[in-house]
């Protein structure tokens, strides 16, 4: 990850925080949540495409973190360790979905849009409907495309493109070799490209909109 913001620096140097959290310090634990919650939520959201499910996964991830952080031996391995928990929960959610292919009664997308507005208002900044609409359009296209590619490829693509992982770190999260990670990433990107092309989504159309 590139150290672009103070938050990034804080995330990379949270060693003391992690050590304190391992001693059971609730304040330190909640500070870790504050540093990582948005990342984990966005990772899960891109993976499962539903706000409610992503929220559930994020909460479960941090509950697991609270319970097991003592077992983390190497403080430097915190990030891959946290993403490993989240990734396992995402895969579990996928299996659950396949077992009972039930369609949710409530339209999750409506729910998500209401949530978007709520967040916009809650943050107190100017809620820009047009900008937001374009982002939502792009988001729904990309979510759909991502949901169509293989899960193993999907998690690698998200980690590399959005979470700033090194290949070595992704290998650690997934417990596979670096070469496997690269092969999966290539396959994932290639599939994604084909899907977007089929939907006639190119750099030009997106740039025109954004």
């Amino acid at each position: 990850m590139h150290a672009e913001t103070l938050l990034d620096i804080a995330m990379m140097h949270a060693d003391t925080l992690i050590v304190n959290a391992q001693k059971g310090n609730e304040k330190a634990l909640n500070k870790l949540v504050g540093l990582w919650y948005k990342r984990i939520y966005n990772y899960a959201y891109k993976y499962v495409s539903q706000h409610d499910v992503a929220t559930e996964i994020s909460q479960k991830t941090f509950i697991a973190m609270f319970r097991n952080i003592r077992k983390l031996h190497d403080v430097d391995r915190f990030k891959p360790w946290l993403y490993r928990i989240a990734t396992n929960l995402c895969h579990e959610e996928d299996r659950k979905k396949k077992r009972n292919k039930m369609v949710s009664l409530s339209d999750s997308r409506n729910n998500d849009e209401a949530y978007e507005m709520e967040i916009g208002e809650a943050k107190g900044n100017s809620y820009n409907p047009e900008r937001n609409f374009q982002q939502l359009e792009l988001e729904s296209m990309l979510l759909e495309a991502l949901s169509e590619i293989n899960e193993e490829h999907r998690s690698v693509v998200i980690m590399k493109e959005y979470e700033g992982f090194k290949f070595r770190e992704i290998a650690e999260v997934l417990g596979v070799s670096e070469n496997t990670v690269k092969t999966r990433l290539y396959a994932g990107l290639k599939n994604l490209k084909t899907i977007l092309k089929k939907k006639n989504i190119t750099k030009e159309t997106v740039y025109y909109e954004l």
Binding site: G24, L29, K38, F66, I119, L138, L192
Partner: peptide, 27 residues
């Protein structure tokens, strides 16, 4: 193929993170 992937990655980068309100956890 590589060029197409490259330009698709630029589309991917346009997608911004969603804002979330983190919950608080109590032991």
């Amino acid at each position: 193929e590589l060029d197409e992937i490259k330009s698709m990655r630029q589309i991917l980068r346009k997608w911004e993170d969603k804002e979330v309100v983190e919950p608080s956890f109590v032991l």
